[in-house]
């Protein structure tokens, strides 16, 4: 049989080959290895390669892992909620009241990225600590009599730090979806009797829904697996599943269990994301 491939098809394959090889080497291969590893057993220094589901049974039945999974999801969902809630007004302001300075406002939003993520997270210790900026300030104002302790080394601190750190990632997609709204639709809604309140809920919000859904996914997916923030500001009450995975890979020397936890985490996040997209699919039409 003679292979009859059109020149365009060949060209297409050539163009695709580099990213394709790249993604196989750096994405598919590690994932497959992780998946394989999760079905094996670590026996001190030897890796037992007989197929077993024990790691998964352990991951889903041990109370400590259940707690860490549910805490990670709770923290991540809270962070997603607050990030989107806080990012929306900012995106709205830039899009509708940014005037000629939109580019400047967007530029200002990127300024936190000039410092490393690690440093930014670390600085929350300085702000939220027992003798930190916030407590000193509130004491000076005499609004409190002794320093607040519920704001550092627990889940609250993780939520605060993550919400701050991920805000720009939520602002940008919402901003883009707001920018795409035809301004004459806003006038039409006013013309047909809506005040600013109804205009927002009947036109602006539904039409910017794709940006909100996108922002929510962008925040939710990576924050579930965040490792450094809970490590720095989470104390013991704020530890998340990624911290346990790290411990299993290193100190506990149980790579297969760590792999099973990773894969489980991946599945849970994928499942929630898919459900979220399906629930919102009528909002995701492109207008």
């Amino acid at each position: 049989m003679i292979l009859n491939i059109k020149p365009e098809t060949k060209k297409g394959w050539r163009l695709l080959s580099t990213p394709f090889i790249f993604s196989i080497l750096l994405l598919a291969a590690p994932l497959t290895m992780m998946l394989l590893l999760s079905f094996w057993t670590q026996d001190y220094l030897i890796l037992d390669r007989t197929f077993t589901l024990n790691n998964y049974i352990e991951a889903f039945t041990q109370p400590v892992y259940q707690l860490l999974f549910s805490r990670s999801l709770a923290i991540s969902l809270t962070v997603t909620f607050f990030t989107v809630l806080l990012a929306y007004p900012m995106a709205y302001f830039i899009s509708f009241h940014g005037g000629e300075r939109k580019a400047l406002w967007l530029f200002l939003i990127t300024i936190p990225f000039w410092t490393s993520y690690l440093l930014r997270m670390f600085l929350w210790k300085v702000i939220l600590g027992y003798n930190g900026v916030l407590n000193s300030f509130l004491l000076w104002l005499e609004m409190i009599t002794e320093p607040l302790t519920f704001i550092l080394y627990n889940a609250n601190a993780v939520v605060i730090a993550l919400t701050h750190g991920w805000a720009p990632f939520a602002i940008l997609p919402i901003f883009v979806s707001l920018e795409k709204i035809d301004r004459s639709l806003l006038e039409a809604s006013r013309d047909l009797g809506d005040g600013p309140f109804h205009q927002f809920f009947r036109v602006v919000l539904p039409l910017s829904a794709p940006g909100v859904v996108g922002a929510a996914l962008i925040i939710f997916i990576p924050t579930v697996g965040d490792y450094i923030t809970p490590k720095l500001v989470g104390g013991t009450d704020g530890l998340m599943i990624a911290n346990m995975i790290q411990v299993q890979f290193s100190k506990a020397n149980n790579a297969p269990l760590a792999a099973a936890l990773s894969v489980s985490s991946l599945m849970i996040v994928a499942f929630i994301s898919i459900v979220f997209v399906l629930v919102n699919r009528k909002h995701l039409r492109r207008y």
Binding site: D182, S184, L185, E187, A188, S189, V203, P206, L207, Y287
Partner: peptide
Amino acid sequence: QNYAIFPH
């Protein structure tokens, strides 16, 4: 002019 029909 562009009718401003609500697309949603």
